[in-house]
Design a protein around this nucleic acid. Structure first.
Lengths: 340, 340
DNA sequence: ACGTGTCAGTGACACGTGTCAGCACTGTGT
DNA sequence: ACACAGTGCTGACACGTGTCACTGACACGT
């Protein structure tokens, strides 16, 4: 009764030593049994005793101790700042998470709101993740990448259009979205095509690429592209619609279904007929776009990036030297409704 | 030149021992300096040498080792399954993250997609978080709570309308949203009020409470409430609109601006005039709702929960026995536009 | 009686960190 | 000359885990 092991220290969390004591075996045996270590043979009765003891104590291994001993973890860190919204992102994210779990990684999102670039990198490095996937919300510097790699990260991967020295990159071909939209508009006979460029921060890298894609699509067709800065507010849209005739456009690719809806309403309120006078095309195929009259034409995007990205992570972890510089084509097609 | 410490073991992660060696001091001193331990006095020149050595090696402390030694962490775990979308959630989430950081907690989101309840709890427990905030996407059982508490979690907090034995709860008064909506509709003279109940999984707990709130609001006024199951699809909305006249409703609170927009369009297509024949009220005050004609009336919700929740976490960690059973009123008001 | 082999399990170390007790010096008062 | 306090630093332990080298016990063939 002098040892405080049994019930007196009730509130301390059980360790594998406690399990070993209860099962009457050594700690090593406990480890072998609970991890199903193949190279060691333990008799079935002993296995049962260990498992029952673990169950009874409610033993849960200590991840930190485990990865400390192992010298590495299977943690993939996903820095998060302002959560982007929308079903597309949600789908991508779920797919990434799911695919990484299948590959036996643990996905951890780390809130990095309000941290400066290298400060953030240091915070991430403390967790010793095996890989870091940056969605471009926190700007990653080459120094940041160096910090992470030095801390043992096998792979640092940037997603999107940014490219950082030392990091792997999965380039999303956002340009493709602009390209198919502009191609469609040219095909239906439009000549002067506006391209909405959102002014909201954090969207630049998508917007710029889509604009660029549209430019490529019209090259050599005689059509032209005009960038149109727009904030996601009614006033901004009305202001733009007010000087629409002066711009002399007969079509607009509006970055997004949301921006498209906003702009289309403003155009109609300003007396501009859609699609006769101006065609409107959005992107993402939101259900809400189908509710407007005319129904909104849109670019439908297949989000298969999640699985690609997961595989990129895995191969980069296995062999950090291989730099596949993957590129995803963002398979996308125009769904023509009534607004174009 | 026989020690592989300097450049030959280049690729190994620097530890505090390496820093100590380079600075020519003991490891203890390094720890004291880098943590600014108040109770120990170290001369300024030594401090500088240590800091410079740490800088030169790119030393980053090992969070796992640290929390292993400390016996506790400042990690708040936020299980994530299907990411809910929408600006409201985004705002809440950023606020929570920000507030917890100010209280010196580290927020970690853990992807728990596809895990069963207690399996998930065990996975979380491995990380030994000091607190777990469950948003109700993964159903938490009393056993799950027990597992977490036994693993050292000081606070297990559920957010939303679920309540779990053993866990603290921050009850969001979702009923309030339904209440103000229904009150408004009664006030403008409506008598038979439909309340849309989304059939999508994961929304039940919100939907049920809002319905309940609407029921409370009409009690004693002579008005009645009719629940209307609806999927977020055009077909479902059209089907509902097709039998609208048979339902004999003169108003509907549609759970959401999105559902409201969907339903309103279907009603109009079915020849039912809004708001004359049927008034429509949504919730969340999406910008897009203002684009429809008539403009959508909506319930505007103040999301101040983030800070409340952070404070609840902190107080629960400080004194796990205190059970404040907090309740948030979801301060909300109707913004009347043209659809009601 | 002795080497050889298999089975079932154990003891001890290392991972990187924080902290406690203690040690060598130096000044300071008597 | 000695006690005493203060300063600046170090040695050693503990946290919980995985794994390697090793040990007793027993069976078998000669």
């Amino acid at each position: 009764m002098r040892k405080p092991t049994e019930q007196s220290a009730e509130r301390s969390v059980p360790t594998s030593a406690d399990v070993a004591r209860l099962a009457g075996v050594s700690r090593a045996t406990v480890s072998y049994v609970l991890n199903n270590t193949a190279a060691v043979r333990i008799s079935e009765p002993t296995r049962r005793r260990v498992r029952e003891a673990a169950e009874e104590l409610g033993y849960v291994p200590h991840a930190a101790a485990r990865s400390l001993r192992a010298g590495h973890s299977r943690m993939v860190l996903l820095p998060t700042a302002h959560v982007p919204i929308g079903p597309l992102y949600s789908q991508f994210f779920n797919e990434l998470q799911w695919s990484l779990r299948r590959l036996d990684y643990t996905v951890v999102q780390y809130g990095s709101l309000g941290l400066e670039a290298d400060e953030a990198a240091r915070a991430w490095a403390e967790l010793r993740p095996v890989a870091v996937v940056s969605l471009g919300q926190v700007q990653l510097t080459p120094q940041g990448v160096e910090i992470l790699k030095r801390s043992g990260a096998k792979a640092v991967i940037t997603l999107g259009s940014q490219r950082v020295e030392g990091a792997h990159a999965l380039v999303m071909d956002q340009g493709r979205v602009g390209r198919v939209a502009a191609e469609h508009l040219v095909e239906v006979g439009r000549r002067r095509i506006g391209v909405v460029v959102p002014e909201e921060p954090g969207l630049e890298m998508f917007a710029e690429r889509r604009l660029e894609g549209a430019r490529q699509a019209v090259a050599g067709t005689g059509a032209t592209v005009v960038p149109l800065p727009l904030r996601y507010e009614e006033d901004s849209a009305n202001e733009l619609a007010g000087r629409w005739r002066a711009l002399g456009l007969d079509a607009v690719f509006a970055y997004n279904d949301e921006y498209a809806m906003l702009l289309m309403r403003a155009l109609q309120d300003a007396g501009i007929s859609v699609p006769e006078e101006t065609a409107v095309v959005g992107s993402d195929d939101l259900l809400l776009g189908r509710l407007l009259r005319p129904r909104l034409s849109t670019v439908q995007i297949d989000m298969v990036i999640g699985r690609h990205l997961a595989e990129l992570v895995d191969s980069a972890v296995r062999d950090p030297e291989s730099v596949p510089e993957a590129r995803d084509l963002l398979a996308s097609r125009v769904v023509r409704r009534e607004s174009s």
